[in-house]
Write a protein that binds this DNA or RNA. Sequence first.
DNA 1: GGTCGTCAAGGGGTG
DNA 2: CACCCCTTGACGACC
Length: 310
Amino acid sequence: MKIRLGYVAISTSLDITSSKTITYTNFIKDKDYNKLCSTINNNLDNLIEILKYNIANNIHFYRLTSKLIPLSTIIDYDYITPFMSKYKIISKLIKDNNLRIDVHPDQFNVLNSTNKEIVNNTIKSLEYHYKILDILNIKEKIIILHIGGNTFGKEKSISRFINNFKKLPDYLQKCIAIENDDKIFNIIDCLKISKKLNIPIVLDYHHYICNNDGEQIEKYIIEIFNTWHNKTPKIHFSSPKSNSKREYRSHNDYINPNTFIEFINKIKHINIDFDIMLEAKAKDSALYKLVSQLKYLTNYKFIDETSFLI
DNA sequence: GGTCGTCAAGGGGTG
DNA sequence: CACCCCTTGACGACC
């Protein structure tokens, strides 16, 4: 089975960012749309550079920053047509090099909130992420979402998620994958929701370690992967910042290779290709470090810099 | 040019 | 009800 590794948003090897922002309070002072435009141009140019770098290093799995377009969910403006030529360049890079691109709106997107306004903001944010995936002509559009808050208890919170999900436009429903979180909704909860909505589950292994009811992941992995049907499943992997109670849930700069190998051993009885997104502060450096450690510690057969067979 | 407080967001916990 | 913390990368005011 083939496993491919990826990283999130920022390359530490490049001194550029595709997440340049303008704060709302600052923008409304003089409503400088030229500044907004030049920030978007900067972010898109830098995204092009990052993708070229990924291609040169055989990194084919990558998560876009949610901050690519500043204020996209706060003010109403056209961030598509004025930048079409850049979107086309990015789209071609993705298509020609078979890059796998996804997005993961942050924890402030709460589809099951009891506050209507927050649900509406979440929908706006989902629409923004969809628009970007769409304009980049990405065929397999994946937006990874957490279940959200726990107000009035788990059962009611899951019901709210399901009800609000069903109200979403069809094109958004088709893109959403759910991820188990580190505090409230574990992999069993996600499977329950996935069965009702027929949507894929992204297993976050670190969250599973933080939040489980004693379920063994080796027994559920096939069920989780089956939620992806004919698509390639995704997994999130990270290591705790430290073993202290306060920092255990936080991400470490790097990936613990022994935990990684342990995880692979737990699930290698299945025979399905999948991708692993490394959520480490050191980004692509963490990826390279892990790969060099795996080459030393295991007999995984590396196909290129970021993918291997077991 | 470097440092440090601030910005955005929603939930959850404490007092 | 008021406050504070979590998280994140970058802004922006200041020296």
